[in-house]
Design a protein around this nucleic acid. Structure first.
Lengths: 234, 234
DNA sequence: GTACATACTGACACGGTTGTCAATAGTAAT
DNA sequence: ATTACTATTGACAACCGTGTCAGTATGTAC
C-alpha cells in the first residue's frame, strides 16, 4: 500500500516535451545545470496544466524527470523558487510569442491585417497551459507587479493603434480614439483568457464542435474588424 | 502558544456574511445544522476568494467561524465534501442570479434593453469570488458535467435570441442568425470570466482607474449593441 | 592520473493538515 | 426531570510534502 507501486500514473499521453530518461539501474545521469532546470520546469509545467495547482509536488515532478526530489531543491532552492522560476519562464515565453505575433504582420503584407493579428494574439493567449498557469498565479496572488504580461497590453495596444492610424490616413478616415483601441486589446485579452479556462466547457454545453469554436473565433475577429471600420465611418 | 490566542486574524474587513460569535469561555454555542453549514460555507467561500485554492484549510475556516475543525468534518464528512458543497452552492447561486438578471428585464420596460441585460450578465459573472471559485474548480478538474453553469449559456442565448427576434420583427428587420446570438453570449461569458481573473491586473497595467473600467464595460455593451443592430442592417 | 567542483542521492527530521474517537453539552419532547 | 438526539469539542493518530544533510558519482581542468 505504499506509494512506490504506482509510478507516474497515466502520464503516457504527454507531448515529447519531457524526455523521460529511463534511469539505468546503477549509472547515474548527470546533466548540465541548465538542462536539468529545463527538464524540471517542463515537467512542472505539464503537471500544472494537467492537474492544476495541487499537481505541483516535488516528488511527483522528480519522478517525471527521473531524478530524486532533493535534486529539484538543489536547482531551485525551494518549492517556491521553482514556482517563481516557472512563472518567470512562462511569462517571458508568452511575451516573446506575443511580440513575434505582432512583428510578423508588420513587416511585409498589408496593414489592414489587424484582425488576423487579433486572431494570432487570441490563439496565443488562449493556450491552455499558459492561461492556466497565469490564472493560477493570479488566483494565488503572486507577482503583483511582475513582468507577468509586463506592459504587454499597452505595447500591443500601441502597436495596434499605430496601424489603425495608418489605415485611417490611407483611406482618409478620421483617426480612431486611443482608448477605443486599448479597449479592443483588453477585450481580446479578457476573452482569450476566459476562453482558455472555461472555453472548453462552454463550447461543450452550447453544443459547439471544433468547427464551431473556429467559427466563434472568426466571428470575434470579424466583430472587432467591423468595429474598427465602423468607428471611423460614423 | 496554542491556537486559541490569535482568534480570527485580520478578518474584520469582511462583509457581515460571517457572524463571528465570540465564544464565551465556557458556554458552547449550538447552531442548527443548516445554520452551521451556511456559516462554514460562507467562511470557506471567503477564504477561497481571498487566498485562492490553498486557502481552504479546515482549521482556518473553523477558526473563522469560531468552531473547532472536527465540527466541519461532522457537517461535511470530509474536506472534499466541503469543497463539493461549496461548488454546488456557488453554482446554483450563480444560476439564480443569472436567471433573475434575465427575468428582470423581460417583464416590464422595453425589449431593446438587451445591452443592459448584457451588462447585468457581465457584472454578475465577473464577480470576483464566483469566477475565482469556478475557475479554480475548472483548473483542478472537478465537476465535468455538473450543474456548474448547467445549460445556462444556452438558456441565456435562447432568451437573448428571443428578444432579438422580437426586436427585429418590431422594426421590420431581418431576423438574426441563431449562432450569432449564441456567439454574443459566449463572448460575454468569456470576457466576463477573463475580466474577473485578470481584469484587475490588466486595468492597472493599462493605467485605467475605476472610471476607466466602467467605460470599458460600457464600451463593450455598446459594441455588442451596435453589432446586434448592424447584423440586421446589412 | 589527480584534484576539484558540483549534480545527484537516500535517509531522515519537521511541520502542517486531514481524519478519528470518546466524551461533553445544548435543546426539545415526553 | 428524565430522556433522546446531535452539535460540538479536545486529544490523538496517520499521512504527506518540504527541506536538510552527509555522502557519492561524474565531468572537467591541470
Amino acid at each position: 500500500m505504499s506509494s512506490a507501486a504506482k509510478s507516474t500514473p497515466g502520464e503516457g499521453q504527454g507531448e515529447a516535451t519531457v524526455q523521460i530518461e529511463r534511469k539505468r539501474e546503477v549509472k547515474r545521469i548527470r546533466r548540465s545545470a541548465d538542462e536539468a532546470r529545463r527538464l524540471i520546469l517542463d515537467a512542472a509545467e505539464e503537471r500544472l496544466a494537467a492537474q492544476g495547482p495541487e499537481g505541483i509536488r516535488l516528488q511527483d515532478i522528480a519522478r517525471d524527470v527521473g531524478i530524486s526530489h532533493p535534486a529539484i531543491l538543489h536547482h531551485f532552492e525551494s518549492r517556491e523558487g521553482l514556482v517563481r522560476a516557472l512563472i518567470a519562464r512562462t511569462s517571458t515565453q508568452l511575451r516573446d510569442k506575443m511580440l513575434t505575433a505582432l512583428q510578423s504582420k508588420h513587416n511585409g503584407e498589408d496593414v489592414v491585417e489587424a484582425n488576423e493579428l487579433i486572431s494570432n494574439v487570441f490563439e496565443t493567449l488562449s493556450d491552455r497551459g499558459t492561461a492556466r498557469l497565469l490564472s493560477w498565479m493570479l488566483l494565488t496572488g503572486r507577482s503583483p507587479e511582475n513582468s507577468t504580461s509586463g506592459a504587454l497590453v499597452t505595447e500591443i495596444a500601441d502597436e495596434l493603434h499605430l496601424r489603425r492610424k495608418e489605415d485611417a490616413a490611407k483611406n482618409a478616415k478620421a483617426a480612431p480614439e486611443r482608448e477605443d483601441t486599448l479597449f479592443m486589446a483588453i477585450l481580446t485579452a479578457n476573452a482569450a483568457f476566459g476562453d482558455a479556462i472555461i472555453g472548453r466547457e462552454l463550447a461543450a454545453e452550447a453544443g459547439l464542435d471544433q468547427a464551431g469554436v473556429a467559427r466563434f473565433r472568426a466571428w470575434f475577429a470579424k466583430l472587432l474588424h467591423d468595429h474598427a471600420g465602423d468607428v471611423n465611418k460614423s
